[in-house]
């Protein structure tokens, strides 16, 4: 395990401890908002596992998809977004209420996916995408 991985695990452990309800009422940091659309069925893995390993799952799959052209895999960032996007915003980032951002802000881990990836669920993007064609 690399040093970075250990540090990340520790950070995450701290975050998870908070999630598990250790954050007391007078905590200055708002607890993460968990949004999921139950209509889409269950997640690809149990919540505890997702919390601990989602970054590795995504990173592993991104290399497979991008470099080897593997499509239709179980793990997919767009899959995450389609279930976890906020009901109003349709996005997983943008405010502390949104799924990805709320937890990453809580755990103080920089989120770099959405510099390039579309944080909104597919259908909503198709409608709003602008620019003269």
């Amino acid at each position: 395990m690399s040093l970075a991985a250990i540090a990340r695990t520790l950070l995450l452990a701290a975050g998870l401890a908070g999630l598990a309800g250790f954050a007391s009422a007078d905590s200055r940091v708002p607890k993460p908002t968990i949004q999921a659309d139950p209509a889409n069925g269950t997640c690809v893995a149990p919540a505890a596992e997702m919390r601990r390993n989602h970054m590795d799952m995504l990173k592993h799959q991104r290399d497979k998809t991008l470099r080897e052209g593997e499509r239709g895999a179980k793990v997919s960032l767009n899959g995450c977004i389609s279930c976890h996007a906020g009901k109003q915003s349709g996005s997983v980032v943008g405010s502390r209420q949104e799924f990805c951002e709320s937890c990453h802000a809580y755990a103080a881990v920089k989120l770099d996916c959405f510099e390039c990836h579309q944080p909104k669920a597919g259908a909503q993007v198709a409608k709003t995408a602008g620019g003269e064609r």
Binding site: A45, R52, N53, M57, H60, G69, E70, R71, K74, V75
Partner: peptide
């Protein structure tokens, strides 16, 4: 999917699909 060990293995199962 649900039977495999955390994270990576889960994806390797899916990796059986076609690639470039």
């Amino acid at each position: 999917g649900l039977l495999v060990a955390p994270g990576i293995r889960l994806i390797e199962v899916a990796g059986a699909s076609t690639t470039a």
